[in-house]
Design a protein around this nucleic acid. Sequence first.
DNA 1: TCACATATGTAATAATATAACACTTAGAGG
DNA 2: CCTCTAAGTGTTATATTATTACATATGTGA
Lengths: 137, 137
Amino acid sequence: MSSTHTHSKKSQSLTKNQRIVLDLLQNSGEPLKAYFILDSLKKEGLNSPLQVYRALDKLVELGKIHKIESINSFIICNNSNCAKNTAFTICERCGKVKEIKNRDLTGGVSDLVKDNQLEITRYNLEFYVLCKSCKIN
Amino acid sequence: MSSTHTHSKKSQSLTKNQRIVLDLLQNSGEPLKAYFILDSLKKEGLNSPLQVYRALDKLVELGKIHKIESINSFIICNNSNCAKNTAFTICERCGKVKEIKNRDLTGGVSDLVKDNQLEITRYNLEFYVLCKSCKIN
DNA sequence: TCACATATGTAATAATATAACACTTAGAGG
DNA sequence: CCTCTAAGTGTTATATTATTACATATGTGA
Ligand SMILES: [Zn+2]
Ligand SMILES: [Zn+2]
Ligand SMILES: [Zn+2]
Ligand SMILES: [Zn+2]
């Protein structure tokens, strides 16, 4: 602790707004919409959309959450090392979302990339499915 | 013409609004935003967002155009038999969009699906890239 | 002709997201 | 400790994207 090296606070330091938004997404585990987050965190002191969007932007940038583009929603990252890549299944019927494990995906995507000679900087994959419980009913 | 069989008008019959929206997207070849389409077609008689969105919805349903979710834009389908599946590359830098040929993709995606034991009803794939001209500069 | 499904026109409003600006805080470095 | 700077905050206003509601019209098939 008392050594001279700077120890730069870097990664662990989320701000208050970032923290409470992250906690909400963490506790929810489901995709949430920005304005729902705003409403939920009014009591924590969030008053304007911009406060929410700024926190969300930062958390996306840090790879701690993802945006699911086709439903304008945000969800906690359930993997490690996604960077800004996203891959989800979304149930057509009930809307349930699951993040695809990136170890399951890496091979498949890189084959895709190789086959198409793409130089991909990041990707966004949304697979619409019928989830188990919806398939039964 | 005068025979008794119904010859059901089915596929070729787009309505006026659907036709002019499709033509615009066809002639453009680029992704266009709904309100840009509205502005462009004011002179053709389109007056309200709803007229545009209704035409777009129908054309998406018919598979003639696609929505690119992460940029809220619509583009003419450049394949056949996409159904409602979409796969695009999007340049990070200049925004240029290209549809990935589905013959290039089918294998890769079905491997992905097999590996992940998914029962996919449709997919939405967005690959961010650096396009050739952006890579040079 | 009648019924029905589909499309239209129009106004209002909802939902999602950003711009602009003044101010504050936290950390780096002297 | 002081000062500089980058990042974050709070707030108001506004832009962008999309849908609801409702009355009317049009085409097709029986
Ligand atoms: Zn993730
Ligand atoms: Zn389901
Ligand atoms: Zn297509
Ligand atoms: Zn480019």
